[in-house]
């Protein structure tokens, strides 16, 4: 009983860190990838983090809800290498809510049809399945 009370009293204080164990702010010199001598200095290493607005956050929350609660009860049948929910997530995250939604409508309702197999290159995904690659529409490979 005494042990239980001691544990309860100790709980709000949280786990005890020694000074050496305490989390430290990341050291930029350590976390940044080291430039190798054969790579030029101007190589772009880090993309700026996108700003999350309310509309973007709501849309991304809905996409996550779909992906975790609905998509798991269905089979994977998207013919594209980047699935529709991932396409929507990337489009909204990178281009904002309005442009992202228009790109998603274009992909999901206009471009996904019987002719798509002849229009997009086929690539092998990490799970070994051959799927269509329309990454250009998200900016991949776009000059």
């Amino acid at each position: 009983m005494f042990f239980g009370c001691a544990v309860l009293l100790a709980c709000p204080t949280g786990p005890a860190f020694s000074r050496a164990d305490a989390p430290r702010p990341p050291d930029p010199a350590v976390t940044a990838p080291a430039a190798e001598p054969w790579e030029p200095d101007e190589l772009d290493r880090a993309a700026p983090a996108p700003v999350l607005t309310v509309s973007r956050s709501v849309a991304l929350g809905m996409i996550h809800w779909y992906r975790h609660d609905l998509a798991t009860r269905s089979v994977s049948r998207c013919p594209f290498a980047v699935s529709c929910s991932h396409f929507a997530e990337r489009a909204i995250r990178e281009r904002g809510f309005l442009i992202g939604v228009t790109l998603f409508i274009d992909r999901n309702l206009y471009r996904e049809n019987t002719a798509m197999g002849t229009l997009y290159p086929i690539i092998q995904c990490s799970d070994g399945v051959l799927r269509l690659d329309d990454g250009f529409f998200l900016g991949d490979g776009n000059p």
Partner: peptide
């Protein structure tokens, strides 16, 4: 309006894609 905007964005991007695909 949203669907029409998607149609415009899609038309622009599709033309760019055709040119990129030919070059690629």
């Amino acid at each position: 309006g949203m669907f029409h905007a998607a149609n415009l964005v899609g038309a622009h991007r599709t033309a760019q894609y055709r040119n990129w695909k030919r070059r690629e």
